[in-house]
Amino acid sequence: MPTVKMKVNGKPVTAEVEARTLLVQFLRENLRLTGTHVGCDTSQCGACVVHVNGKSVKACSMLAVMAEGCEVTTIEGLATGNTLHPMQQAFMDNHGLQCGFCTPGMVMTALDIVNRNGNELDEATVRKELEGNICRCTGYHNIVKSVRAGAKAMGSKP
């Protein structure tokens, strides 16, 4: 079995995995980082979005071995101690989640949106950028509000 080495949320990890192990399986089963979810098998729903080398990817459509040598960030890697990341805080402040299942993917995608589009986001941009993340609970209204507020908050942080 291949050995894979990567950094997950800043910590180096090494493991032997079957080549067919998906990154999301590796995170959930091997590392027990169960915040990253699986909501579909066709890379549509976005519940599994994590960052690989700073960019959002669907961890259900990437092999663990493909992340060899990469820096992976999951939802578990965002908060600093007890302090939520401003985007997490924005989701809480704006009721941007209900059942919570799509939430980790939404937050990781939201950060990617901010990275590429900056801190002042209009509604249309956010809605378009969220097309790879499906939520059944919120109707998106408050997710859009959360992403915009989170983006702004990230900009005002020193």
């Binding site: 976005g46 959002s56 990817v57 669907k58 995608t109 949106i113 590429r116 790879g132 993340n133």
Partner: peptide, 9 residues
Amino acid sequence: IGDPAVRNR
């Protein structure tokens, strides 16, 4: 094409 995460891969 696809969505942002798909475009990154």
